[in-house]
Write a protein that binds this DNA or RNA. Sequence first.
DNA 1: CGCGCTTTAGTTATAATATAACATCTTTGA
DNA 2: TCAAAGATGTTATATTATAACTAAAGCGCG
Lengths: 159, 159
Amino acid sequence: MTSVYQTHDHHHCISEALQEARTLCQRSGARLTHLREKVLELVWQSHRPIGAYDILAELAKQEERVAQPPTVYRALDFLMEQGLIHRLSSLNAFIGCPHPGKKHNGCFLICQNCRVTQEIEHQAINQSIASCATDQGFKITDAAIELTGLCSNCQEAQE
Amino acid sequence: MTSVYQTHDHHHCISEALQEARTLCQRSGARLTHLREKVLELVWQSHRPIGAYDILAELAKQEERVAQPPTVYRALDFLMEQGLIHRLSSLNAFIGCPHPGKKHNGCFLICQNCRVTQEIEHQAINQSIASCATDQGFKITDAAIELTGLCSNCQEAQE
DNA sequence: CGCGCTTTAGTTATAATATAACATCTTTGA
DNA sequence: TCAAAGATGTTATATTATAACTAAAGCGCG
């Protein structure tokens, strides 16, 4: 598996994400319309979180009709419900989910230099959080774990 | 130690927080002005996160001069720099730090029903996050861990 | 097919959160 | 006491998000 930090054939990431989305939506009966797929594609245009208004601006460039904010937010809401993207609340931005389909709460490593963001699934973190909640008698419905710092690439670059 | 979920003498929480803030600021040479102290007091008015504009509204009620947004945001920035409050990005709101003075990244349990929010220090979580970062060669500078769900009180109430 | 229902998208307006830029006042220390 | 630094005031505006209503498209059933 290639790392998001390495140069790689990103078109492959995009087409894979779109294909997976189509499959999942077909299976669940959700309607992945042209607009929704387009927004998903824009979210996947890089491994950096993208804001709703940036998506709006891209849509304005690429599509005939100029969309309004609610159009974009509705598409984003749909994609989140389907588990195809995540919202990073510390950035007010959205990023594609690399392994959609299963409901999960990812842990995000956000590079403050290059902005590349990696979602990881880490058993020890999940377990410690679960046990912490149990200790407190707290029932988690949603976990936002957003770690900001420097990715390995950018650390090297700064030396 | 009384839990934030239990009924307790909250005036005690407030005065303790203010006293600790005064001590810390004196020690560090930071200027805890009237405005900043007032804002800190408002943040501590409950164990629920409060938004900047709610603080603004309270200030308008309680003070002579009507403050503007930058005034409040600057006070909040100061309080965050001093480690006296935290910002919860998933709520765009602020909450008092129960053990200020040491730099730390708290883990927050946010009840979606009563909104009471508890900051906990959990070794296993800190460790698992640190080891996760190490695995990835990632250098964390800031961690936002915000867990939303139901506190024990509200779970009981819903049965 | 065609009718009606449901879902999606368009449109307009506005709410909620946050900051830029510059003016003024206050504190502090030499 | 005065100059510099720091805090607050003020005005305007940027950024993010949603409410409310309208129009169009897809879909299921007779």
